[in-house]
């Protein structure tokens, strides 16, 4: 069935477009060049800022959509800041944490109050901790890529998601993220084999719904709380 449907849809398209065959070779070459040229369309000027300005914009935009933000000086301070946040919110100290290299660099074992498991979450997990490989200043958006070191369900299953973000990873726009995932895909060391990560998540604030009388409610299915720890010195 599938193949005849395919021919029927493509055939009907071509007739409608006034051709009875695929586009000619010249046109195809132009279209391929457009697809691989990575030319940017308009990128909003609000991100024409220096590095510090970008971090500030990211923070403002993220807070506008109900994320909370804390700053620490270095990775050494991250476990303490995570513990402090969880205590302050009366949240459990058991966390499920992404097995990623960024987080490996923090001295978790010094903070004996936290109970840490590394890997993908299960239904009962209440708090997840991940890092983010990039963050978009334009709209306060975190970018996260799935992989063995970052199961995508960590971004959705637990009620609280704590994200560790080295300040140097704040970029201007989604287009900057595209460039970096393309570079990563084609880097032989990444093991991506030319492919995008299976899942690329742009996360802008915690989960929300307006489905009951347009009342804004946080925590519809994904996290109720999104807490971002910015590591200023990284």
């Amino acid at each position: 069935m599938s193949d005849s449907n395919r021919e029927a849809v493509l055939g009907s398209l071509r007739r409608a477009l006034g051709r009875d065959a695929p586009v000619d070779e010249d046109t195809a070459a132009k279209l391929r060049a457009r697809m691989t040229g990575h030319a940017r369309n308009i990128v909003p000027a609000r991100t024409a800022l220096d590095d510090a300005g970008l971090v500030e914009l990211f923070e403002t935009m993220a807070q506008k959509v109900h994320a909370t933000v804390a700053h620490v000086a270095s990775m050494d301070d991250v476990p303490g800041a995570v513990g402090e946040y969880l205590r302050g919110e009366n949240l459990p100290s058991e966390i499920v944490m992404a097995p990623d290299a960024t987080l490996d660099a923090a001295p978790w074992s010094d903070n004996s109050l936290l109970e840490i498991r590394r890997g993908a979450p299960v239904e009962s997990d209440q708090v997840s901790v991940t890092s983010a490989p990039a963050a978009v200043a334009e709209t306060g958006t975190l970018a996260m890529y799935s992989g063995p070191d970052h199961p995508a369900t960590l971004n959705f299953i637990p009620e609280t998601h704590v994200v560790v973000l080295p300040a140097g990873r704040v970029v201007k726009s989604y287009e900057d993220v595209w460039d970096s995932i393309r570079a990563q895909a084609s880097d032989p060391e990444s093991g991506r084999g030319g492919q995008l990560p299976r899942t690329v998540n742009f996360v802008t604030g915690p989960s929300r719904s307006g489905d009951i009388e347009q009342t804004l409610l946080l925590g519809a299915h994904g996290p109720r709380r999104l807490h971002i720890v910015i590591v200023d010195g990284e």
Partner: peptide, 19 residues
């Protein structure tokens, strides 16, 4: 300005992925 979640999915899970 942007919805909470914008997600790109490309193919099935990859080797080594745990979800």
């Amino acid at each position: 300005e942007f919805s909470s979640y914008t997600t790109l999915s490309t193919g099935p899970k990859r080797e080594g992925d745990t979800d």
